[in-house]
């Protein structure tokens, strides 16, 4: 088992990038979910989305913290003072929240991905990551239960809810390949037992989500990337700027502030 002191120098940069991508995914999705606070279709769902947002942002803090142990970075600096090109989140999480069907389908796809990823990371040879994955994985079960139920409600609800779910699928499904794509150094991290094999993870996530989506009666096409989408994380459609403007404006108004 390795930790931040014994991690080999060659693996530091790939692991830092991987942890940053995971943290950025959670941070941005958490903020998109938080936009529903006060606007969700039901009071219960308003509370649920606020909980999901709080969890995702808390998980982001965990992953930024693991990065910090390796490179000494300050999570607050990373969140509030990086610009969009330096964020490594996937496109899926930064798209506007859209309607309820898109919000829930995106959440389901992300939850299914996280559950598969965390189950594998729980066996990571990088001990701090394995420990955090066990903790976060338990909490993600609550998310997956919730978003899975919404898939069923939307698919079997009304003609309109089904149509909205189909439209959400047309947007979200082609974004899955980027979320699952390997990053630089993936082979080395896998060889060291730190991160799962990206192709095996991708197959597991696709099989799981395809089975769930077909299970509620959707026709799921082949997984081909959205046009204009690169596998490379770090490019962003216009939407991330909007998230960051909202998220960073207060911190940037007084960069010297030590306490809020």
């Amino acid at each position: 088992m390795a930790d931040a002191r014994t991690l080999s120098a060659a693996l530091q940069a790939p692991l830092v990038a991987r942890l940053t991508a995971m943290a950025d995914d959670e941070l941005v999705l958490g903020h998109r979910n938080a936009e529903w606070t006060g606007h969700a279709p039901l009071l219960e769902e308003d509370i649920a989305l606020a909980n999901l947002a709080q969890d995702e942002i808390g998980h982001a803090i965990t992953w930024y913290g693991l990065r910090s142990a390796i490179d000494g970075s300050d999570p607050d600096q990373l969140v509030y003072f990086r610009d969009a090109p330096d964020f490594l989140n996937a496109w899926l999480v930064e798209l506007p929240r859209g309607d309820w069907a898109f919000t829930m389908l995106r959440q389901y796809l992300f939850d299914a991905y996280e559950c598969e990823l965390l189950a594998r990371l729980a066996r990571s040879t990088y001990e701090p990551l394995a420990q955090a994955a066990v903790k976060v994985g338990r909490e993600e079960l609550f998310h997956l239960r919730h978003s899975s139920l919404w898939l069923e409600r939307l698919a079997h609800g009304t003609t309109e809810s089904k149509e909205r779910l189909l439209r959400a699928m047309a947007t979200a499904w082609p974004l899955l390949p980027q979320l699952l794509a390997p990053m630089t150094g993936a082979a080395e991290l896998h060889a060291a037992g730190i991160w799962p094999d990206p192709s095996e993870l991708r197959d597991a996530v696709v099989a799981r989500t395809r089975s769930a989506l077909e299970g509620v009666g959707l026709t799921v096409g082949p997984l081909s990337p959205a046009s204009g989408l690169t596998d490379h994380r770090g490019t962003h459609p216009a939407h991330l700027d909007e998230v960051l403007a909202n998220l960073q404006s207060v911190a940037r108004a007084d960069p010297e502030a030590v306490q809020w």
């Binding site: 219960e44 509370i47 649920a48 606020a50 909980n51 999901l52 709080q54 969890d55 909490e139 609550f142 239960r145 919730h146």
Partner: peptide, 13 residues
């Protein structure tokens, strides 16, 4: 269960 999420992360309604 009225809501799988409650006033804090650790509770349901």
């Amino acid at each position: 269960v009225r809501n799988a999420f409650g006033s804090t992360l650790c509770r349901e309604i």
